[in-house]
């Protein structure tokens, strides 16, 4: 089973990297950039019988720092 786990900063957490990217897009002449938030994408290949609980635990215990980040899991066939 293939998983895509997307980790992003929680709303309200300032994102200096996203801000820098936003400014760089503006410098390139792209108009109308209202906001950029940077995050992380993990692609996992796991055993088909891996439970949702186990996947959630992986996210909470390691892949995301839930003090500042949230995560969402997408399953692909």
């Amino acid at each position: 089973m293939k998983l895509r786990i997307i980790v992003t900063l929680k709303p309200g957490v300032l994102d200096p990297q996203g801000k820098a990217i936003e400014h760089a897009l503006g410098s390139l002449g792209f108009a109308g950039i209202e906001s950029v938030r940077a995050g992380k994408l993990f692609e996992l290949d796991v055993a088909d019988d891996t439970s949702d609980e186990a996947i959630d635990a992986m996210c909470r215990q390691l892949l995301a720092n839930t003090v500042i980040e949230k995560y969402r899991v997408e399953k692909a066939a």
Partner: peptide, 11 residues
């Protein structure tokens, strides 16, 4: 310890 340490705001 509580909290987290993020990228410096000046990058």
């Amino acid at each position: 310890l509580p909290g987290a340490l993020m990228r410096n705001t000046g990058l």
